[in-house]
């Protein structure tokens, strides 16, 4: 067992982990159920998190590699009463069907919008390309990201 400290959504967790434990399994054990397992091989993208500001697949990261680092999951974006504009746009545009791939896809979209406030369709497709969804055909999700981007730009303009 190796002792590590991982900061998840702003809270430090001191945990003892086996060397082979993945960050995905650690996060789920800690109760962050938004991080989903769809393949465990880095293919489906349901386990995405933001690790030190970079979107990555947590099934491909060992828990001990996250020692001393900060992880954000979708729980950090918003909640039912105060959803993030991306969460609101996804729901309102019909981008959420079964919802299994959605938390991770929202993080990928958030990572995109933090670097590109007005992405094109192709840029959105590229950013979401690692997040497999079998329900929607991605049409509504692309619409939702564009809609949220617009809302976020307007919010920013209002703040200026």
């Amino acid at each position: 067992m190796i002792q590590i400290t991982v900061n998840v959504n702003g809270e430090d967790f001191d945990v003892d982990v086996m060397p082979e434990l993945t960050l995905l399994d650690l996060l789920r054990e800690l109760g962050f159920h938004s991080v989903k397992k769809g393949c465990g091989e880095g293919d489906c993208g349901a386990c995405g998190v933001i690790l030190d500001g970079i979107y990555c697949k947590s099934c491909l990261v060992l828990a001990m590699q996250a020692d001393g680092r900060s992880v954000l999951t979708v729980e950090s974006m918003g909640n039912v009463d105060e959803p993030h504009p991306l969460q609101k746009a996804f729901v309102d545009e019909g981008a959420v069907q079964c919802g299994y791939c959605i938390p991770s896809m929202l993080l990928a979209a958030d990572a995109l919008l933090s670097e590109n406030e007005d992405p094109t369709d192709d840029e959105i497709k590229e950013a979401l390309d690692g997040n497999l969804c079998r329900c929607t055909g991605y049409v509504k999700q692309i619409n939702a990201v564009k809609k949220a981007a617009k809302v976020l730009r307007e919010e920013e303009n209002d703040n200026e």
């Binding site: 962050f32 938004s34 989903k36 039912v80 959420v96 919802g99």
Partner: peptide
């Protein structure tokens, strides 16, 4: 009408809703 999907926001905010959760 396009009412809000009843489980949409719980899913989008990462609720513990699936068997594994």
């Amino acid at each position: 009408t396009n009412v809000r999907k009843v489980d949409g926001m719980a899913l989008a905010t990462g609720g513990s809703l699936f068997v594994n959760d």
